Amino acid sequence: MSTGPASAEPPAASSVPSSTQSFRPSFQPSFPYKLVATDLDGTLLGEDHTVSARTREALAAATAAGAAHIIVTGRAVPWTRHILGDLGYDGLAVCGQGAQVYHAGEHKLLTSVTLDRQLAALAISKIEAEIGPLALAVSRDGLDGDVLVGPGYRVQEGPLPALVVDDPAELWSAPLNKVYIQHPELDDDALALAARATAGSLVAVVMAGAGVVEILPLGLSKATGLSLAARRLGVKAADTIAFGDMPNDIPMFGWARHGVAMANAHEDLKAVADEVTASNEDDGIAMVLEKLLLG
């Protein structure tokens, strides 16, 4: 799931082609899970950054059958709220790769884990000593935390706004929930592998999407955030089905009873998934939920 900085405002929800098939069961369906956990980018969202009508209806049918839907995303809260609002979502959401448990209905952070900035700076210095200079961006903590982009960091095209700063010291001037790293030559997988090998005893390193390698507090993952949220909902791992597309979803799959990778997922996630569905563009979530609802 991509969670990296970008430069444009989020697009308005687009209409769904008339050929999309709606799922409207004529009976009250049963459903084998109490919790449906979905990643956002590359999973729940299409390439237009919206949720299709078919997927909305399938999720609504699952919740009508007694399941709760929870979004589990690498995006921090400020980059997630507009999507939650568009969905009419007022429950708990796990944001920031598990760092934040957010109550959408109350607009309140229930938990927030910050990254030790001194430890992160040490980790980055160790990585740079091994593979050379990195370009950095950071996500500041809080309900309104900005994403700041430092010199040389390549900003992705997309709907997520970021602030460009000229002074690298400004990146470290306020509490953070993550640091984004880029390398001028290494691809995402190679960079994540090198960073983890060099500084994995100090911080967690995840690859969350194309061009998005992140440094997080050691031990933090989507699974830790999801387990906290599930506990608040009174739901267990054995009651959970999870959907994702990137290596940062691996811990969530390890925690949940059933992990479903999208057809567009990274091969590392497919390797540990219990099931592979269609892509996010082809309503892969809806296809699985509809089948489960029909028994």
Score class of each variant (00 low, 15 high):
R81F: 10
G209C: 07
A190R: 13
I241V: 13
D39R: 01
R81W: 12
G295I: 06
A263E: 03
R231A: 15
A12D: 08
S221L: 00
E185P: 02
L148P: 04
N248C: 02
L122N: 15
G295S: 13
D188W: 12
L216P: 09
P25D: 03
L143W: 03
R81N: 11
G225C: 06
S30C: 10
G219W: 02
F23W: 02
V272R: 05
G244P: 13
L294Y: 09
E47C: 12
H266Y: 05
G46R: 13
G254V: 01
V149F: 01
K222A: 02
V165C: 02
G142V: 05
P217K: 10
A62I: 13
E57C: 05
T277D: 05
V288D: 00
M1S: 14
L163I: 14
D239I: 05
A58G: 00
A61D: 07
E214N: 03
S2L: 08
L220T: 01
T111A: 07
G91P: 02
V164C: 13
A8L: 14
P251D: 01
K34V: 11
N280A: 06
G98H: 07
A223W: 10
S279L: 04
L92W: 03
T38F: 03
G234Q: 06
G88C: 01
L136Y: 02
M207W: 15
Q182P: 14
D282M: 02
Q21G: 06
L269D: 00
G284L: 03
H258I: 06
I127D: 04
V212R: 07
G158R: 10
C95P: 06
T80V: 12
L59D: 07
G132L: 11
S201W: 14
V164E: 15
T198M: 04
M1G: 15
Q100D: 12
A208D: 00
M287W: 12
D48Y: 06
P32I: 02
S14R: 13
F31Q: 00
R232M: 13
G158W: 10
G209Q: 06
H107D: 15
G96E: 08
K108F: 01
I131D: 03
T114R: 06
P25V: 00
L226P: 12
